[in-house]
Design a protein around this nucleic acid. Sequence first.
DNA 1: CCTTTACCATACCAAGCAGTATGGTGTCAC
DNA 2: GTGACACCATACTGCTTGGTATGGTAAAGG
Lengths: 196, 196
Amino acid sequence: MTTLVKDMSSKLARSAFDLFARHGINNVNMDMIAAHSNCTKGSLYWHYDTKKTVILAACDLYYRNWEEQMRHELANVKDPVKRLKKAVHFSIRHCMVDSKNRVFTLGIMGLALYDEDIKKSWAGFYDMVREFLIVLVNEAKKTGRVKVEDARRVVDLMLVAFEGIKLRTIIEPDFDISAEEKAIYNGLMEVLKCSE
Amino acid sequence: MTTLVKDMSSKLARSAFDLFARHGINNVNMDMIAAHSNCTKGSLYWHYDTKKTVILAACDLYYRNWEEQMRHELANVKDPVKRLKKAVHFSIRHCMVDSKNRVFTLGIMGLALYDEDIKKSWAGFYDMVREFLIVLVNEAKKTGRVKVEDARRVVDLMLVAFEGIKLRTIIEPDFDISAEEKAIYNGLMEVLKCSE
DNA sequence: CCTTTACCATACCAAGCAGTATGGTGTCAC
DNA sequence: GTGACACCATACTGCTTGGTATGGTAAAGG
């Protein structure tokens, strides 16, 4: 029986993202995505040419979600130093502590090793995040309360440490990332030359 | 025609490592490994039960190689601060700048996402490296020339930044890691509170 | 000398899964 | 009312690749 759904593409992408984030991208097949979306594999292929296009749609969903929530976090924050701190806090909570987002993005990194399109997709998001944080660091620097010579350099270092901490959760199951949130925040802020 | 080889297991592991390091682990199949080793797939399976056991053997080879070369690097270095510096320098050259080792270990990280045995193998190596560096930092601290409160904390941060920099090479093809070697070294030494 | 090990050449299997086919119905827009 | 779109149920294909089978020979060890 036909079930017409408005914005079916988005619904499928969201459904796919949920499964990818819960089980790991490589443990999810197209049959599972169709079943989880309450439609048939034929319908899924009506909207998406390949599994890769589904993965890329899930990526876009993730990027959009990050932007939207980051904008919301900083909406009523005027002070540049506070904005920077809140941005880092949010990133830790959203991309690291949130296990679904963490599992998804680690899976994307794994795929980026072998697939050019997925690599470019992630690189685009990574660049966007970096430029965004560089702007925040430069604004904080203008206040005189943050002593940073090269905003780009400290943001780069902070971001690689950030991704490295996510990797660490793969190999250390006992690494309680929620409990370590404050220590992680302090470590990353120190890298940004912005410690209390 | 039979070709008997001494220490065939090691030869196969080394051959496999070479292919994994050159093409990426997921792009290498058992037929390729047999061909590259100048033997048949039947022979390969005589020595190794599964592809996974081949990968784990290649890991052990990598770990052994790291230990051996690190020991060699520090053989005639007595000064604790010099030993720490040399260790970090060597790690950058061996695990990051060396593209084969970098490709191999990134591939292992990708597999560790989904396979418990590979995860444990890598975790074991990671722990060994960490404990080793903590000892070096503590010895350097004793000289009074390195101001570190918590050796474990700074080594952890340095290691996650290290792994994060490797990830960055996946998404930034123009990131010339050899050219950046000095900047990377300086950044990591700063994290270790050991900058010049 | 006999048994076991260590290989060989070659074919084969299985299994999973991405992706396609097909004949259909319901919905929507004009 | 008609054509295009958006789905359906179900079967099917292809294909890659890990892993196995089989009957063999050469080398090694006792």
